[in-house]
Design a protein around this nucleic acid. Structure first.
Length: 296
DNA sequence: CGCCAGGTTGTCG
DNA sequence: CGACAACATGGC
């Protein structure tokens, strides 16, 4: 008979944690919801089930309470922070749409590899690639579930070994990342302490890691809330809401603003028109290029 | 079938 | 420096 740890966390209701919004907003890729609205995922070597019961977050299978407390960063008061963000109308709308997002404190190496896999990929496929990586090279932790592979393990692999997960041109990037982390050429302590720009440069020593992946790794894997990843969606959000960029005052928590904006622009019914308009713009660009090509 | 995806690299002009 | 195709694969 297997025993399970059950942890209770009473959280400030004003923070309004939403598991759906937090676990399915594109910051993590190993959680899924079941028919009873319970979330299943993996933190470290623990397969965990999460659900909210009243004012409590219940975690089955956790290592201890601290693991969950740290993962959700309950030490950080989101109420104050959201008040600051809501001074800006688009952010206020984003919060009104989904204010239950929290930036998780995920494992550094796992985040790095996951966001290398994310490049030029859609979210469903990213999830598939991460699972393939884990089931092929991760340590089994029971019930057919696998932990995320360690950097030691991945650094022993060749690009050919990785071909089984079909991650395409990203394979050599992963091998390089694993090697550099394993040898301490890229290291977490530095990433946590360096000024943002230096930390980005440090990560970009890895082949296949540019500014966007570096910033995602810093924000989601090093808890650098000042990191502001700019992807296609954030470009669209900035274009439509903040053509002159975000207020410098928000820089220290830019990453959190970023995540609310990302979720809002990508999924809110309110931004449907923007998505359609951006799509139209893209088609137009494409048409122009075609005509240009036809001329030459 | 064609478009696109939480980009980065290498190579032109 | 800035634009831009190529990259490997599959979801929709």
């Amino acid at each position: 008979m297997k025993t399970k740890t059950i942890s209770f966390y009473s959280f400030d209701k004003t923070d309004n944690l939403s598991l759906s919004q937090t676990l399915d907003c594109g910051q993590c890729f190993r959680w899924h919801i079941d028919e009873n609205s319970k979330w299943h995922g993996i933190i470290g070597k623990n397969a965990i089930t999460l659900y909210i019961d009243g004012e409590n977050l219940i975690a089955l299978g956790a290592e201890n309470e601290k693991q969950i407390f740290d993962y959700f960063d309950f030490n950080l008061n989101y109420k104050k922070l959201k008040n600051e963000l809501s001074l800006y109308p688009p952010l206020k709308s984003a919060l009104n749409y989904a204010e239950g997002i929290r930036i998780l404190r995920q494992d550094f190496f796992e985040t790095l590899i996951t966001f290398i896999l994310s490049q030029n990929n859609n979210i469903p496929r990213i999830k598939g690639l991460v699972e393939a990586l884990c089931s092929n090279f991760g340590e089994p932790i029971g019930d057919g579930i696998f932990a995320f592979p360690s950097c030691e393990k991945l650094s022993q692999l060749t690009v050919e070994d990785l071909s089984i997960i079909k991650c395409g041109f990203r394979a050599r990037y992963i091998i390089d990342a694993a090697n550099k982390v394993n040898h301490g050429i890229v290291n977490y302590e530095l990433l946590s302490s360096l000024p943002l720009e230096k930390a980005e440069e440090h990560l970009m020593k890895i082949v296949g890691v540019g500014k966007k992946v570096a910033d995602c790794t810093l924000l989601f894997g090093c808890h650098r809330l000042d990191a502001f990843p700019v992807d296609v969606w954030i470009k669209r959000a900035l274009h439509n809401f903040f053509p002159n960029g975000l207020d410098q005052k928000l820089s220290p928590i830019g990453g959190i603003a970023q995540q609310f904006l990302f979720h809002y622009i990508r999924t809110s019914p309110e931004t449907e028109n923007i998505r359609l308009e951006e799509k139209r713009l893209r088609q137009e660009e494409k048409q122009l290029k075609k005509e240009k090509k036809a001329k030459s």
